[in-house]
Design a protein around this nucleic acid. Structure first.
Lengths: 238, 238
DNA sequence: GTCCGAAAAATCCTATAGGAAATTGGGTTC
DNA sequence: GAACCCAATTTCCTATAGGATTTTTCGGAC
């Protein structure tokens, strides 16, 4: 038997070109700088990324799952159209169901959950302060907001990861891209990020007490808070 | 202005070769005649179906979503390994959450739901009788069981379609393939299909009375019944 | 018999080419 | 000026080719 290798590179996951193209296009879409409804030409993307159309094509198939693009046979891909009011309501209803169930299931695993959640919560606070500072200064940095979005997503994902249900986690990830796109519309509000952070704190505090009922109630209040802020911006934003 | 075309073929959806390959491989996997864990070579599939590897490759990317195949970069695709006990439990937990939520949301739309549900229920009864007759005769026709599976899936899907939430419906469809694969292990029981039909009847009857509480309770009993029969077969089957 | 290693085969992955369909643009007719 | 039709271009889609990697096979050493 050989001694355990000091450099164990077996963990680093090998990836094909298709996966890198997927990441790039996904980032481009989440960035939000592409207009909804506009075409996403396979060949054009291939030339822009300096690869052949084949891996681009496969990445687009994979992107269909995120809901960020729509496909029509023989006509190509388009950036998904913006949310309508009813689609928005359905997304929040679905997310509420998932988050409540995840909170219920994750609460018993406090030993795993709480450290991760506290760490995510601290990061969320740090970036929230950055965002509010940037907004006060009148310079909305996309760099900062993207980091804030990531911290927000990490907080919620920590709960799902501790819910010990891979299908629940998969459903959350499937809605993740659409949720992220939604977040971008909710940033404009002055103290939105601080409200969100306070709601997160309520969830965390209830979980620290081991109070499952209070935790789910706080999570419900949080999701409904995000919903309220979303529709508020939906109306405010022309 | 021309008169409205008598044959309006605008509805029929045009499909590429990739979609047909997807359907064929999906059917092959749902049929259950391929061994879990075995390799699914792109080139081999392409030769078998007499097409080029390119559309096969795209169909495989799409199949990743169903959970029926697993991919490892540079190593190809494999038929997903069989369910372990914990995976089975998680799948039922997730499905229970979805079905209960769908029942709650579909119940108010009785005018849309009940006709469709009754029709699906009648079909379910018809094929259930076919299955029990075939099993009594000792000839388990895959043709009949597949039709029964389709009728069972149609009953549940009718509820989700009337829940008026596209994301809930999408989640259900995402779990659909795995659920279907699970069904195949639950057929052996003598009167399993009749039990399932009786449980469906309880759900339908409660919905006809407009009793949402009873409907969700019946749905919970149904899913738990399927779970019980599944693990019973899981243990019985070597 | 078992383990190891190199050659051979199979497979994955990307690039390129060309046919088929859709979109665009321009000219004509009413 | 608007609607229509046809050509030109763009784009999608599938097939083929070849390099890179993995898997298998086979021979030899312990």
């Amino acid at each position: 038997m050989t001694a355990p290798l000091p450099l164990r590179l077996g963990e680093l996951e090998r990836r094909g070109l298709r996966d890198r193209v997927y990441d790039l296009v996904l980032e481009m879409l989440l960035q939000g700088d592409v207009e909804p409804g506009s075409r996403l030409s396979i060949d054009t993307l291939a030339k822009q990324l300096d690869v052949s159309p084949t891996p681009v094509r496969e990445a687009m198939v994979q992107l269909e799952r995120t809901g960020l693009v729509t496909r029509e046979a023989l006509k190509g891909y388009r950036v998904a159209p913006p949310f309508g009011p009813e689609e928005l309501a359905e997304l929040f209803d679905a997310r509420l169901m998932l988050e409540l169930e995840a909170t219920r299931r994750a609460a018993p695993h406090a030993d795993l959950l709480l450290p991760r959640l506290r760490e995510a919560h601290d990061l969320h606070r740090a970036w929230a302060e950055q965002v509010t500072a940037a907004m006060a200064a009148g310079e909305p940095s996309t760099r900062v907001t993207q980091e804030y979005f990531a911290a927000d997503a990490a907080f919620h994902r920590a709960i799902f990861e501790c819910a010990s249900n891979r299908f629940l986690l998969a459903m959350h990830d499937d809605l993740g891209a659409l949720t992220h796109r939604l977040r971008q519309a909710v940033i404009r509000g002055a103290n939105d990020v601080e409200e969100a952070h306070a709601e997160h704190a309520a969830v965390l505090e209830a979980l620290e007490r081991g109070d499952v009922e209070a935790a789910t109630a706080s999570m419900r209040a949080h999701i409904e808070g995000v919903r309220t802020r979303s529709v508020r911006e939906e109306i405010a934003g022309d």
